[in-house]
Computed example of a mutant assay.
Amino acid sequence: FLKSVNRSYKYMSLKAKLYKLPITEIKVRYALLKRANGYKPFLYNITFDACEFLRSPNNPVTKVAFTLVKKHTNLNHTCPFDHDLIVEKLDSNYVANILSRLPFPSGDYAVYSTWFAYDIPRADVNIYLKATD
C-alpha cells in the first residue's frame, strides 16, 4: 500500500504472504518500460534466479534495484524462505534521490515484475515512476 503522511513524506509498504513453506526456488522477471503512446520496452528485460542472486549479486542492474529496497526489507538471506516477504516504509524521497543519480531522460516509467516460485508465476508487481529534471 501507499501512504502519504504529508506533502513531502510518502512511502510504500508491501507484504507477500507465502502459503507453502519453505520456498527454495524463486525467479524474478522484470522489465523497465517508458510511456510513449502506452508503455513501451525501455532498456531492460531481465529474468534472474533470486536465490542465486542473494548468494552472489552478479547483475549490476539488479544490484542497483536491490540496493533501493535492501534497508527496508527482510530479504537479507538466501533461500529457503520460511516467512512472509516484507518491504516496509520505502520512502519516495529516498528512491528519488538514488534514481536521480542515474542518467534517465525525464518522463513516465513503469517497472513490471513477475515473481515465480518453482517456475509457476505467483505474483505480478507493477511500479510506476515519474522522472523529472
Rank of each mutant, 00 (worst) to 15 (best):
K63F: 08
E88P: 03
H83E: 12
A123M: 12
C79G: 04
V95M: 09
R55S: 07
I23F: 07
S13A: 05
A123V: 11
S106W: 13
I120H: 13
L90S: 09
D133M: 05
K10F: 01
A31G: 13
C51G: 08
F53D: 01
P105D: 01
S100L: 06
F48H: 12
K70E: 08
S8P: 01
M12K: 08
I127H: 12
N93A: 07
A123G: 10
L21I: 07
N6L: 04
I120G: 00
F53L: 02
L75I: 04
W115C: 00
D124Y: 15
N74D: 05
R7G: 08
Y30A: 03
R29G: 02
Y30P: 02
R122E: 08
D91H: 15
P80L: 03
A110K: 15
P105Q: 05
K20E: 10
S92Q: 12
S4W: 05
T24L: 07
N76K: 13
S113A: 11
N37K: 14
A131L: 08
S56A: 09
A131T: 06
L54F: 14
K15E: 09
N74R: 11
F81G: 02
A117G: 06
T47I: 05
E88C: 08
Y11M: 03
D49L: 09
K3A: 04
H72M: 01
D49C: 10
Y9P: 01
F116G: 01
A110G: 11
L99P: 00
T24V: 02
K20H: 14
K17W: 09
Y128Q: 12
G107E: 08
A31Q: 15
P80V: 01
H77K: 14
N76C: 05
D49K: 10
L68Q: 07
V125F: 15
Y112A: 03
D119G: 04
Y94E: 04
A110P: 06
K27H: 15
A110Q: 14
H77D: 03
A65T: 02
L85E: 04
E25V: 00
R55L: 06
K34S: 02
A110S: 14
A16E: 12
T132K: 15
K15H: 14
P80Q: 06
S113E: 05
K27F: 13
K3N: 11
K27C: 02
K34T: 00
P105T: 01
L43A: 10
R101Q: 11
K15Q: 12
Y9R: 12
Y9A: 01
D108A: 09
Y39V: 01
D82R: 13
A123R: 13
N93R: 14
L2I: 10
